[in-house]
């Protein structure tokens, strides 16, 4: 089984700070990590390989900071990692991303199964896996919470109002949800070995993809909702009666 996993090095959104004046996120030098759902896609691929044999390779693209994700990809157990990094990719929209990833998947070899996280932790468009499947003209199983693969792929897909069990012939694209597994934590020796492994590098000039984004971000800001921040501290149980102050305020506001 030749499995390709799309892995993004995302901003760690939990740790993003905002400029108190402009309310804009401070992204220069902001911490990054392997996108949460992509990590589960990689884990899923490694488990399938452990069961049925084959190989797991990853494809990643982004700004040069993306290179930092390679060590972890190898430490988890991938066989090879393919990378495309360029400063111009900072503005890549989901369409450009999907087109480049689809090309990278084809250029990097044969494939039976493509696994992606359903959405990246930062961009959160939920579009890329679906677009890759359409560009490669193969079926797509979205939001998998379980996946079994032999000569077909059978996934339980969380589609909001129901869990759909979908079955598709290979090759196909499966996007995975956070619930699909608990990713392994690499051992220290695996991490040490990983730092010696090389990645395969693509260059932006190898691709005939229009890099002009159709989605242009005009501004990004922290939403401003001012809150009263009226606090009572009843951690000392003798002050428990003070919670009444909150009820009184809510009644004054006509919320109750």
């Amino acid at each position: 089984m030749e499995i390709v996993v799309c892995v993004k090095q995302s901003y760690d959104v939990q740790q993003i700070k905002f400029d108190p004046k402009t309310k804009e996120p401070i992204l220069a030098g902001a911490p990054r990590k392997m996108s949460d759902m992509d990590r589960r896609a990689l884990e899923c691929a490694l488990r399938i390989k452990e069961n049925v044999g084959g190989s797991v390779r990853t494809v990643s693209l982004g700004t040069p900071e993306t290179r930092d994700v390679v060590k972890e990809i190898y430490a988890m157990g991938a066989d090879s990692a393919y990378l495309l990094t360029d400063l111009s990719l900072a503005k890549a929209d989901p369409d450009i991303t999907a087109r480049l990833l689809a090309e990278m998947i084809k250029k990097s070899g044969d494939f039976n199964l493509i696994l992606c996280g359903s959405a990246s932790t930062d961009g959160y468009s939920w579009q890329v896996p679906a677009k890759i499947s359409k560009l490669l003209n193969i079926p797509f199983l979205p939001n998998a919470i379980s996946l079994e693969v032999d000569d077909t792929a059978v996934a339980e897909c969380d589609l909001g109002d129901a869990i759909y069990k979908l079955k598709a012939p290979l090759p196909c694209v499966v996007s995975v949800s956070l619930e699909i597994n608990e990713p392994r934590i690499p051992t220290l020796s695996a991490i040490l070995k990983a730092s010696r492994k090389q990645f395969h590098e693509f260059h932006i000039k190898d691709f005939e993809v229009d890099l002009t984004p159709e989605l242009e971000v005009v501004s990004t800001r922290m939403p401003e909702v001012s809150r009263k921040n009226f606090m009572v501290d009843v951690s000392d149980a003798s002050k428990l009666d003070e919670v009444k102050k909150v009820i009184d305020e809510l009644r004054k506001e006509n919320v109750l």
Partner: peptide, 10 residues
């Protein structure tokens, strides 16, 4: 945007 932390105009 940014996983829901921010709002972008696009």
């Amino acid at each position: 945007d940014l996983g829901g932390v921010a709002i972008s105009e696009v």
